[in-house]
Amino acid sequence: MRKKDTWHDPDDAPELDDAFFERADRFDGPRLMRRGRPPAEVRKVSLTVRYDPDIIEAFRTTGLGWQTRMNDALREWLRQHAKA
Protein backbone atom coordinates (compact mmCIF):
# COMPACT_ATOMS: atom_id res chain seq x y z
CA MET A 1 0.00 0.00 0.00
CA ARG A 2 1.41 3.38 -0.98
CA LYS A 3 1.62 6.08 1.66
CA LYS A 4 -0.59 9.03 0.76
CA ASP A 5 1.47 12.09 -0.13
CA THR A 6 0.90 15.17 2.02
CA TRP A 7 1.87 17.54 -0.78
CA HIS A 8 0.22 18.26 -4.12
CA ASP A 9 2.42 20.90 -5.75
CA PRO A 10 5.84 19.64 -6.95
CA ASP A 11 7.38 22.78 -5.43
CA ASP A 12 6.23 21.52 -2.01
CA ALA A 13 7.95 18.14 -2.41
CA PRO A 14 10.58 17.34 0.23
CA GLU A 15 14.19 17.93 -0.73
CA LEU A 16 16.08 14.79 -1.76
CA ASP A 17 19.21 15.16 0.36
CA ASP A 18 22.09 12.74 1.00
CA ALA A 19 20.22 11.17 3.94
CA PHE A 20 17.31 10.30 1.63
CA PHE A 21 19.57 8.49 -0.83
CA GLU A 22 21.41 6.63 1.95
CA ARG A 23 18.09 5.11 3.06
CA ALA A 24 16.73 4.53 -0.47
CA ASP A 25 16.29 1.06 -1.93
CA ARG A 26 18.66 0.23 -4.77
CA PHE A 27 17.71 -1.82 -7.81
CA ASP A 28 19.77 -3.66 -10.43
CA GLY A 29 17.14 -3.78 -13.14
CA PRO A 30 14.09 -5.38 -11.50
CA ARG A 31 16.16 -6.95 -8.68
CA LEU A 32 16.22 -5.23 -5.27
CA MET A 33 19.80 -4.98 -4.00
CA ARG A 34 19.91 -5.66 -0.27
CA ARG A 35 21.84 -3.23 1.88
CA GLY A 36 24.11 -4.21 4.71
CA ARG A 37 26.91 -6.64 5.19
CA PRO A 38 27.36 -9.20 2.41
CA PRO A 39 26.85 -12.86 3.38
CA ALA A 40 29.90 -14.43 5.03
CA GLU A 41 31.77 -17.26 3.32
CA VAL A 42 31.62 -19.29 6.55
CA ARG A 43 28.30 -18.76 8.27
CA LYS A 44 27.97 -18.97 12.04
CA VAL A 45 25.72 -21.58 13.64
CA SER A 46 23.03 -20.30 15.97
CA LEU A 47 22.45 -22.41 19.08
CA THR A 48 21.41 -22.10 22.68
CA VAL A 49 24.10 -22.76 25.27
CA ARG A 50 24.35 -22.00 28.99
CA TYR A 51 27.36 -20.43 30.71
CA ASP A 52 27.97 -19.41 34.30
CA PRO A 53 26.98 -15.78 34.94
CA ASP A 54 30.53 -14.75 35.89
CA ILE A 55 31.88 -15.99 32.55
CA ILE A 56 29.31 -13.99 30.58
CA GLU A 57 29.83 -10.90 32.73
CA ALA A 58 33.61 -11.08 32.25
CA PHE A 59 33.20 -11.04 28.46
CA ARG A 60 30.41 -8.44 28.44
CA THR A 61 32.46 -5.98 30.48
CA THR A 62 35.00 -5.92 27.64
CA GLY A 63 32.46 -3.99 25.55
CA LEU A 64 31.06 -4.38 22.07
CA GLY A 65 32.28 -7.46 20.25
CA TRP A 66 32.33 -9.60 23.39
CA GLN A 67 30.70 -12.54 21.61
CA THR A 68 33.40 -12.49 18.94
CA ARG A 69 36.08 -12.43 21.65
CA MET A 70 34.37 -15.35 23.37
CA ASN A 71 34.38 -17.25 20.07
CA ASP A 72 38.09 -16.42 19.63
CA ALA A 73 38.85 -17.64 23.18
CA LEU A 74 37.14 -20.96 22.47
CA ARG A 75 39.03 -21.29 19.18
CA GLU A 76 42.34 -20.60 20.98
CA TRP A 77 41.51 -23.27 23.58
CA LEU A 78 40.82 -25.77 20.81
CA ARG A 79 44.09 -24.88 19.08
CA GLN A 80 46.06 -25.39 22.30
CA HIS A 81 44.32 -28.68 23.10
CA ALA A 82 44.23 -30.19 19.62
CA LYS A 83 45.49 -33.75 19.41
CA ALA A 84 48.76 -33.85 17.53
Rank of each mutant, 00 (worst) to 15 (best):
A58G: 08
R37I: 03
K83N: 10
H81M: 06
S46Y: 08
I56S: 10
P10T: 04
S46N: 08
G36L: 09
P53A: 14
F59W: 07
M70Q: 08
R23V: 04
I56E: 11
A73S: 08
D54L: 12
G63M: 03
R26N: 08
R26F: 08
N71V: 07
L78N: 02
D12F: 02
D17Q: 02
R79Q: 13
P10Q: 02
E57N: 13
R23W: 05
D5S: 14
D28N: 07
R50C: 05
S46I: 03
A40L: 09
D54F: 09
M1A: 13
E57A: 15
G29W: 04
T48Y: 13
E57G: 12
S46F: 02
A73L: 08
A19N: 04
L16M: 02
S46G: 03
R37G: 03
P38T: 14
A24Y: 07
P10I: 00
T62S: 14
P10L: 00
T48L: 13
D5N: 10
I56P: 02
W7I: 05
F59M: 02
F59V: 01
H8V: 14
R60C: 05
A19R: 10
H81I: 01
E57T: 15
L74S: 06
R31D: 14
A58Y: 04
A19E: 15
P53Q: 09
R31E: 14
R60W: 03
F20A: 12
R79W: 08
E22K: 10
R79L: 15
G29V: 00
A24W: 04
H81W: 07
L47I: 08
D28S: 10
K83H: 06
R37C: 02
R26K: 14
H81C: 06
L64R: 14
A40S: 12
G63S: 04
D72Q: 07
R2L: 09
R35S: 15
A58H: 07
G63H: 01
P53R: 10
V45G: 06
R31H: 07
D25Y: 05
T62G: 06
R60L: 01
P14Y: 06
D54A: 13
W7N: 07
T61H: 07
L64V: 13
P10R: 03
D52L: 09
D17P: 00
A13N: 03
R50N: 04
W66C: 01
D17K: 03
V49A: 08
R23D: 11
W66Y: 08
W77C: 13
W66S: 04
M70K: 05
W77T: 10
T6W: 02
R43P: 00
A82Y: 01
R31N: 12
R50F: 01
W77E: 05
D52A: 13
F27K: 02
M70S: 02
F20V: 14
D5W: 06
L16G: 00
Q80M: 07
A84Q: 11
R60E: 15
R69P: 01
L32H: 11
T6R: 13
G36C: 02
D52I: 00
T6A: 05
R50A: 09
G29T: 00
I56G: 01
A82Q: 11
R79V: 15
E41S: 13
W7Y: 15
D72V: 10
R2M: 07
R23S: 12
T48P: 01
I55N: 00
T62W: 06
T48I: 06
R35C: 06
R2V: 11
A58E: 12
M33C: 09
